[in-house]
Design a protein around this nucleic acid. Structure first.
Lengths: 141, 141
DNA sequence: TCTATCTCAATAATGATTATCCTTAAATAA
DNA sequence: TTATTTAAGGATAATCATTATTGAGATAGA
């Protein structure tokens, strides 16, 4: 989401700060993550503004909403088609690029008009692997 | 989730009603869907009981929680590994069985310990296709 | 049947998200 | 630059799904 200027979005310091934070951000932040971070620079920032800006960016196609984490919605500024790998422990999300040959069976193809797909990979990230090993020393899981 | 009896779950009429409703149910109902339906038979049913029963079933592995619909959590009594096709209009979810050759790239494999995957297919269901055609006659989208 | 324990139901609490409403700032054109 | 229009910001209330609490009642095993 490189050029906001000429997209018909009214620019404000708040929006610029949010967009700047999101641009190229690989962390799939939640609304709260965005709020917390941007408030550092702009202490007058309101939570409502974060949600409203998310809505604008989403509706214009500059931001994807991820429904991976059941606790909260998370956002991805990379709008290219890609997939995600999520740590089942800490919920960290990393991007997975690549084409996977996934075609639904005939019967579904006939009735539904397919428009896309998204693969969620589940795993345990390096940090949580370490954490688990440590805990296995004392606590049994 | 055929045999609840010998799973160490204390049986009550409420739980039996919920389990009966879920057993073989292909609709991926939400907590509210379950509540609404089961309340017909058991008007004294409380919403809290639905959530608690869901929790018990989930923790014992008899029920999967789907994080596909950003509005609400939905539940799947089919705990076999399978995938889902969701209608982007009405959010109807249908099961997709089949093995898909999806392997994450090397770099992710090295760091993460993979434990599973889930493919979400997006499409437009027959009913919504019809609805869209109808609307295109008058309203432009 | 008795009793310890678990479950129920009602309701309060929480947490994320959305809506409201008035003020203020940005864009556009004179 | 300034005036005017229009949309955005901020504070806060409202909403909605989900979770926690608690006293009363039911269940299962002795």
């Amino acid at each position: 989401m490189a050029s906001y200027k000429d997209k018909g979005i009214k620019m404000t310091p708040q929006r610029m700060a949010i967009m700047e934070f999101l641009d190229g951000n690989p962390d799939h932040p939640s609304a709260e993550d965005i709020y917390m971070e941007v408030k550092e620079k702009y202490p007058m920032m309101s939570f409502a503004t974060v949600y409203k800006t998310i809505e604008v960016l989403k509706s214009r196609g500059y931001l994807l909403e991820l429904t991976i984490d059941p606790e909260r919605r998370r956002y991805d500024p990379d709008t290219r088609h890609h997939h995600h790998l999520i740590c089942v422990d800490c919920k960290k999300i990393v991007d997975i690029y690549g084409d996977f040959p996934v075609n639904v069976p005939e019967e579904a193809q006939e009735s539904f008009e397919l428009v896309g797909n998204h693969i969620e990979f589940y795993g345990i990230c390096p940090e949580c692997k370490k954490e688990r090993r440590k805990n296995n020393g004392n606590i049994q899981m």
